[in-house]
Design a protein around this nucleic acid. Structure first.
Lengths: 245, 245
DNA sequence: ACTTGTTTGAAACAACTGTTTCACTGGTTC
DNA sequence: GAACCAGTGAAACAGTTGTTTCAAACAAGT
């Protein structure tokens, strides 16, 4: 019977993933299974996973208990790797609190640069397919058709970053513009355009469009950030008039 | 041996779908299989499909040849139903061509209203979960992990609508602002925020956010349209100065 | 009634599914 | 050496998979 203690020796290896070599069997299983699960979902079979990982079928039950728990572990590993490889810049709340919220121009510029760095970080996380070949696909699958066991765990991964974005938007808006509805509207727009960094590639391929040069995540993040800041600017009549000199 | 001529009698039934009653076996199979495929992907089994459809397992091979071709038929049926139930307003090119492209205010208003109607239509298509319980999910699955046989067929369904959006954006921009890069940028933004009408629901549920009242597709389409028009407006310095009186 | 072609249900098919068992490594500790 | 133990491979397990077969049911035309 599986008791679930074998993985304690593998999770502390903080080295980057080598290509299916010199990794432990459990690590190889996760990366190989993650890729196959991303492609085929639950239709992936334990035999093709183990053949690709170069081990016998007994390994899955030995290390993870059963196929379902291997799948859950793959999603968790995907989130962990996304966060570790592309960490969101920690918004120092102290730094924010010391900034005066009124129309002080340089402090607002500082806040806008923080938002830009944040958007670049999450754009890198979603858009860099080379470093995350299957992780984003697997997470996207769970977003479209959530399974009970995984979705709440995914929520725990997303929530802190979302709250950070929400707080950041509130600071950029300033106290006379800030409102829950406006923050949600802007955050929704950001989430949508960020997710499209991943889904848009396939959609463009379907439409037969040439993959444009905006593929670089930072480039797209800047476009999103400029768009958001312009929309906020348009809501600030006093500042706009000042710039219209 | 399956010869693929049985469906000719079912495709001309243009009535709306009744709930698994009085429909032909092939139609019941498509709607039931579509729902199960949307939930479980290719992990769905022919037996659970046929049990839900109330027929024997032989029916799938009799009407569709095999499971894979039933799946392809489900995706096609999803696209057909989406287009039939929520048709995109046919932009009358004659009407557009007769409109002068210069800064004539009422004609530009007319073009912007055409864009708004277009965005509302595609928002209804993507956002109305009551009338399309599984169709959008199935199509989204194929966008994230495209299969060779289906993706090009999906492209043929999407392309005319996308080209119509592209043309419409060019007209709204006007000849002095229009450019391929700008059109693509705006179209990308629109596609992203439209797709999020569907994916955002699950994401909000994961984040524990209360489902806001903006769920109404038209409401969201108007928000997108206003945002797009404002961004275009910001690029038109002459007009903005005129409105700043 | 008889023939015709279409549709269905039950059973059977081989192949494959996830999981378990068990013998057997290779290494460590007494 | 002997005893231990995490880790592995090969085989076997019962159950399920997609597909096929075949006889029966059915409606329609002659």
């Amino acid at each position: 019977m599986y008791v679930g203690v074998h993985l304690s020796s593998t999770s502390d290896k903080s080295t980057a993933d080598k290509s299916t070599a010199d990794k432990s069997t459990a690590e190889r299983l996760i990366s190989v299974a993650g890729e196959i699960f991303a492609q085929k979902g639950h239709a992936a079979t334990v035999r093709e996973i183990c053949t690709a990982a170069g081990c016998s079928v007994a390994a899955i039950n030995y290390y993870f208990g059963d196929k379902q728990r291997l799948y859950v572990r793959c999603v968790e590993a995907a989130c962990e790797r996304k966060q570790r490889l592309f960490p969101v810049p920690q918004v120092d709340t102290v730094e924010i609190d010391t900034v005066e919220i009124d129309d002080d121009e340089p402090s607002r510029c500082r806040l806008e640069e923080l938002l830009r760095e944040f958007l670049r970080a999450v754009a890198r996380r979603v858009g860099s397919e080379a470093n995350l070949p299957w992780q984003n696909t697997l997470v996207l699958r769970e977003i479209i058709t959530p399974s009970e066991q995984v979705s709440q765990r995914l929520g725990e991964y997303f929530r802190p970053d979302f709250q950070r974005l929400d707080r950041l938007l509130g600071e950029v808006l300033g106290k006379e513009l800030d409102s829950l509805a406006l923050r949600r509207s802007l955050a929704t727009q950001i989430l949508a355009r960020t997710m499209f960094l991943r889904t848009g590639k396939n959609l463009r391929a379907m439409l037969g469009l040439d993959t444009d040069e905006n593929e670089v995540p930072e480039r797209m993040a800047d476009e999103i950030c400029d768009s958001i800041l312009n929309q906020i600017q348009a809501l600030r009549p006093s500042l706009r008039d000042r710039n219209e000199r």
